[in-house]
Design a binder for these strands. Structure first.
Length: 591
RNA sequence: CGGGAUGUGGCGCAGCUUGGUAGCGCACCUGCUUUGGGAGCAGGGGGCCGCAGGUUCGAAUCCUGUCAUCCCGACCA
């Protein structure tokens, strides 16, 4: 294509409303324009990148035997009421009414629709297993869209759904998908890590996320990244909302002491107890009150130095849709006049359900508040002073340095990553809710065992920019670049340069190379700046040495350039395709 | 949904405190000179100053309301 005919509106300055690098660069380089908060026009360059990524996804999905179809964005509310998610999904679900006042939704995902297809069209075990996928726009009414394409209200996603007769077959397909995902991201040039995760609103048992690893360790500004914990010894990796760990034991030596009351004026925090009253955080029993579904109070017990992981907590409470910390007034009401910092599981006016983290069981001679302001009990022991909690589970946020719960040898480290894919074992959650069944060998109707597998197409593009850029602009991996090559005639009025540039342009184009000729009557500096900003992997310049028949070839990710003749150009470019290897990351085994 | 900020040609911003007929840089159009890292000179076009009320002889500027956008938090594929 000729640059003069392309819509590539580059900007000299960063847009004022873009915070993260991928957003800034995609707007500046002419890929993206905002329509409204969280909604974007994908300009021609962006569309080409999205098509590249989509095609890689299609190739690999098709290679596994999955079949592509397309389901509607606009869906009837009935389906969502059938699955129960009309109530569960919350405000992120975009709901609207049609002219007949019928409730509708814009699909954030398509489990309901696909399960209906299975229900209606798959009648026999002979048709199973089956894996169906689509690449489609998705809608989520984010409370706060931000980070450009990393969290929009509309995004493009590949979503696949598989149907099976058994858990074993689901697990087989799950591994097939895990391997396909690794190949997909490798081909996109992205290093990913598969991590265990919480399955959230999608539901189900086992789930993993694919994270593009970005910065390591630095405490920089957020950019749509998540914390990823991984083991220094084995290949265990998990999202913060799922990571488990083995704690270094607290001080549990010594004889049991007798409990006594101490005055702790104004000790409303763990730090205060530690600093002002010399009570180590590791022997404090921290008590928090959460309100579940705006209704039911729950007391949460955890060791003083640890933090509650709220997703884990929510998952441990049956039917919990929403949880939050109690307000000061609620604390006062529930504890008979106590206040933050002095809440405890003893001497409550009315009993409150208690959920304890596993960390509290081994506490000995510990300190605890008992709903008396400015007082704590110390030297407390389970059973002797307080009955041991019955509802004990892992609800804590893992800490860097904790012992790995998988291999029990390594320690947990943390890195940051952008989630670009996820895979779930749904089991029979949706098929049961929507009563989707098939006839098995005995003629008995059984619920489909299901899996679902997502890849954020638009998010993957943004993640690639986050991962591959420099001060001058984007550095696309060859496989997902909008064009492979840009030819820059330094001076369009110089006939020698233009002739040579045109010759190369036509030759490469004829050979199937995706190429742009920058035929704008502009200064060389501007063309170079734009080429760097846009991120063409290969730049060919027809300049000073055009008279000698030489062109300057430079790779976007390298500093040096070399001079080649017209005859040498095509072999050189073809060599780049051959030597540009997708990452050779090995697929992970699903644990 | 809580806290904070901002809305002025396509983009980035000044002007607002102290009301008086809207300005700068980039981009755009014309001409000339330039042509290897975002050129120079000359000329030119484009703005209901987010929107709606109000105060005033007069409002981008002051007041009220409203909408939108962004940041922090809560939430999250």
């Amino acid at each position: 294509m000729r640059m003069t005919q392309l819509l590539i509106p580059t900007l000299r300055e960063n847009p004022a409303d873009a915070e993260v690098v991928s957003h800034q660069l995609l707007v500046r380089a002419g890929y993206l324009r905002k329509v409204a908060s969280g909604l974007y026009n994908y300009l021609p360059l962006m569309q080409r990148v999205l098509k590249k990524i989509s095609q890689i996804v299609r190739d690999e999905m098709d290679a596994t035997g999955a079949q592509e179809l397309l389901m509607p964005i606009l869906q009837p509310a009935e389906l969502w009421k059938d699955s129960g998610r009309w109530e569960v999904y919350g405000k992120e679900l975009i709901r609207l009414k049609d002219r007949h006042e019928r409730d509708c939704v814009l699909g954030p995902t398509h489990e309901e629709v696909i399960t209906t297809i299975a229900k209606n069209e798959l009648a026999s075990y002979r048709q199973l297993p089956m894996n169906l996928y689509q690449i489609q726009n998705k809608y989520r009414d984010e409370t706060r869209p931000r980070f450009g394409l990393l969290r929009g209200r509309e995004f493009i996603m590949k979503d696949a759904y598989s149907f099976h007769t058994s858990q074993e077959d689901l697990e087989r397909e799950y591994q097939v998908m895990a391997d396909a995902y690794t190949r997909i991201f490798n081909r996109c040039g992205l290093e990913t890590r598969m991590v265990q995760s919480d399955s959230g609103a999608i539901g189900g048992n086992v789930s993993h996320e694919y994270m593009v690893l970005t910065r390591i360790g630095e405490d920089e500004q957020q950019s749509g990244e998540n914390d990823v914990y991984h083991c220094s010894n084995c290949d265990y990796a998990a999202n913060a909302n799922h990571a488990s760990s083995i704690l270094s034991p607290a001080n549990t030596t010594g004889d049991k002491s007798a409990a006594e009351v101490v005055d702790t004026p104004n000790a409303t925090s763990i730090e205060s107890l530690e600093n002002d009253f010399n009570i180590p955080a590791t022997i404090i029993l921290k008590s928090l009150i959460y309100i579940v579904n705006e209704d039911i109070p729950v007391m949460v017990l955890i060791r003083g130095d640890l933090a509650v992981e709220e997703t884990k907590l929510k998952n441990s409470i049956q039917d919990a849709l929403e949880i939050r910390l109690a307000t000061d007034e609620e604390i006062k009401d529930l504890t008979g006049g106590s206040a933050k910092g002095f809440v405890g599981p003893v001497e409550l006016p009315k009993p409150i359900d208690v959920i304890a983290d596993t960390s509290v069981l081994e506490l000995k001679n510990f300190a605890v508040a008992f709903n008396q302001v400015d007082k704590h009990l110390v030297g407390v022991n389970w059973d002797a002073d307080i009955s041991t909690p019955k509802n004990v589970t892992d609800i804590r946020l893992a800490q860097v340095g904790d012992t790995c719960s998988a291999c029990k040898q390594g320690t947990l480290e943390m890195t940051r990553g952008i989630e670009v894919g996820n895979i779930f074992q749904l089991d029979t959650k949706y098929s049961k809710m929507m009563n989707a069944t098939y006839a098995d060998e005995d003629g008995v109707e059984k619920h489909f065992v299901m899996g679902c597998y997502g890849i954020g197409i638009s998010r993957t593009a943004a993640a690639a920019v986050e991962r591959y850029h420099d001060d001058y602009g984007i550095i696309w991996p060859l496989a997902i670049a909008p064009y492979h090559v840009v030819v820059v005639p330094v001076n369009t009025e110089d006939e020698t340069q233009m002739t040579l540039a045109t010759q190369v342009y036509e030759q490469l184009q004829a050979a199937g190379v995706e190429i742009v000729i920058d035929d704008r009557d502009a200064r060389a500096g501007m063309k170079f700046k734009d080429a760097d900003l846009i991120g063409f992997p290969i730049r060919i310049t027809a300049g000073k040495k055009a008279g000698e028949g030489l062109l300057e070839v430079k790779m976007r990710d390298q500093k040096e350039s070399q001079d080649l003749t017209v005859e040498q150009i095509l072999p050189f470019v073809q060599q780049q395709f051959e030597t540009w290897k997708p990452l050779q990351q090995q697929p992970a085994a699903v644990g």
